[in-house]
Design a protein around this nucleic acid. Structure first.
Lengths: 123, 123
DNA sequence: AAGGACTATATGCATAAGGAATATAGCATC
DNA sequence: GATGCTATATTCCTTATGCATATAGTCCTT
């Protein structure tokens, strides 16, 4: 019984499409960052450290670089392993603006659905 | 320039994952429905008639039936082509309850992101 | 009644997002 | 120099979804 429900709502497929990408654009808007370090900052947006997939993060950053939303450089000196430091491009900043509009639409759709659900008056 | 931004935010990939599925569960919660007819009702949730992909709709309904979230029967009599009439199962109703919780989380994440974006004070 | 328009459902092909596992490599510390 | 940690990268796979196309019955018009 419970297992069936778990089956329905299980897994990791509750991410909003490209939401990670938008979070990254926002985090990099006014300060640079690197892959591993960004993970901690993503907690702010509700990503738990184990929920967030490291490979997804790196793949996303590289993809965003290809699309000229961010650029990267290897860190000069510094302790520990080398870090690839990312920063947002102008193009990325414009893209963020547009994504915010899209997210507002998403939000209002969710609100509509929830309020209609509440109207059902389920016991 | 504008084209590049369009490139970033173009296409149809701004759907929330499995959002359609949840809308269908809600629409079928207290009254039955069939594929084509559900399209009109989905407008309520922000799906424009051309935005909504018909094949996606039918495929989604069939998938939900496989997962025992809905059941279907061919309509008896009635004018026009035969319709496959869907209704929600108990399992589907429980699933909806769970999805609502997930959507509340999604919503709060979006809100957090938007408010942080507003804090940037972009001209 | 033949043709065309419309309703309704279904399927094959392709792409994109993202998870799991694994690989590589430098640095730290003992 | 062996072990463990930090950091980045890649391969394989599944899922969600769009586009195009197929099928078939009904209705309307001439």
């Amino acid at each position: 019984m419970i297992e069936e429900h778990a089956l329905f709502c299980n897994g990791k497929h509750h991410k909003m499409e490209r939401f990670l990408e938008v979070c990254l654009l926002l985090l990099l808007y006014d300060e640079v960052g690197y892959g591993y370090g960004l993970i901690e900052k993503l907690v702010f947006f509700g990503f738990s450290e184990d929920e967030l997939n490291v490979s997804t993060l790196y793949r996303t950053l590289r993809k965003m670089e290809k699309e000229d939303l961010v650029t990267s450089n290897w860190e000069e000196g510094g302790p520990g392993p080398r870090r690839r430091i990312y920063e947002t491009t102008e193009n990325g900043k414009n893209g963020l603006n547009q994504w915010i509009q899209i997210l507002k639409v998403r939000k209002s759709r969710i609100e509509k659905l929830i309020s209609r659900y509440d109207d059902l008056n389920i016991v």
